[in-house]
């Protein structure tokens, strides 16, 4: 039961500022079924925190629990500095915004009318100004009078984001905001999330799109009923994968053992294809020149030497492969 800890520079809360979210051994069960169990993490103010996991992992239930829509079975949390209790529900909901996967707009009402309802629910004093700012932030001012039923899915997501901006939330929960969107609409929503980060909004993002999480998130967490891993994407890569170099030569090496063992810092190697080799190394930047010299000295025709890159998807798949419980449900 070892708990490794490493400071994540970007995820570290500014000194003196309390975390936006603190989750402590939180568990939710529906009868015999466990939605998520013993989940603990914290999110710094202004951080974009990715929450990843397979279908049925408990991501949406976690969001709903932190949003006071459902009560935890055990454990505790604080959201925007307010202890998570059902009595504190209205106060917590005043300081957060949740955008569900389906934005749930009133299709017979216009964009503005939808926003007017929510501005009223947040008791916004300058509702008209606030709505105008929110629409401008998502670049929807021109569609303000359109019925929501006539909008494309991408535009509806943008209205959902505008709605989430109305109360100037301290924490914004985005549940699969790009689910079902085409690449252009996905890019637009991603740009909006970047905009939120620039505004200093804490974003809690659940997503299946790993490249999206890698690009947008300061830190990510992998959930599959229990929390498997939390950290910065690059740290997770380093933790799950040994650092390696990929060497490609024009023809297969006659004695690869001799060549690679002569380079300091190469821990092991394995062939990958006819004339390609993957070297496990201590420090790719320092070892690469030595490997190059060893190859040249051995008379090899070097085609390329590159550091092996692992995506967040590799991390995700590695976790899935590692963990029998983590297989998609």
């Amino acid at each position: 039961m070892e708990a490794d800890t490493t400071t994540a520079a970007r995820g570290e809360p500014p000194s003196g500022k309390p975390p936006a979210l603190v989750v402590d051994h939180l568990t939710k069960r529906f009868g015999d079924r466990t939605a998520f169990e013993d989940v603990s993490f914290s999110v710094a103010q202004g951080e974009v925190f990715g929450f990843l996991g397979p279908n049925g992992a408990g991501k949406t239930t976690t969001v709903r629990t932190l949003g006071t829509l459902i009560a935890p079975t055990s454990g505790s949390a604080s959201v925007a500095g307010i202890p998570l209790t059902m009595d504190n529900g209205p106060e917590i909901r005043q300081h957060i915004a949740i955008m569900p996967e389906n934005p749930g707009l009133y299709r017979r009402l216009t964009v503005t009318e939808n926003l007017q309802l929510f501005a009223g629910l947040y008791e916004q004093r300058n509702a008209t100004v606030r709505i105008g700012e929110a629409l401008e932030a998502v670049n929807l001012t021109a569609r303000a009078r359109d019925l929501c039923g006539s909008l494309s899915k991408g535009l509806r997501q943008r209205v959902g984001l505008a709605r989430a901006l109305l109360n100037d939330p301290a924490v914004m929960f985005l549940d699969e905001p790009t689910s079902g969107l085409d690449p252009v609409a996905t890019r637009e929503v991603n740009d909006l999330i970047v905009g939120l980060r620039q505004r200093g909004v804490t974003v809690f993002l659940t997503t299946h799109r790993l490249e999206e999480a890698e690009r947008l998130c300061d830190r990510v967490a992998f959930l599959n009923t229990t929390l498997r891993l939390v950290g910065r994407p690059d740290e997770l890569r380093e933790r799950l994968f040994s650092r390696s170099l990929t060497v490609e030569t024009l023809t297969p090496l006659a004695a690869p053992d001799d060549v690679f063992n002569s380079a300091v810092g190469v821990e092991s190697w394995r062939p990958e294809g006819a004339s390609s080799y993957v070297l496990s190394v201590t420090d790719p930047r320092n070892v690469a020149p030595q490997v190059t010299r060893a190859l040249v000295a051995a008379g090899a025709d070097v085609v390329s030497i590159s550091e092996s890159r692992h995506s967040l998807e590799d991390v995700y798949l590695q976790l899935i492969n590692d963990d029998p419980e983590a297989s998609p449900r």
Binding site: H25, V43, G75, V230
Partner: peptide
Amino acid sequence: QRAPSAGGQVPPAGTVRRIPR
């Protein structure tokens, strides 16, 4: 279905934490 909240240490923000199985 609610139950009394449990105590416990919370890791600080910005912490990489591997939860063992």
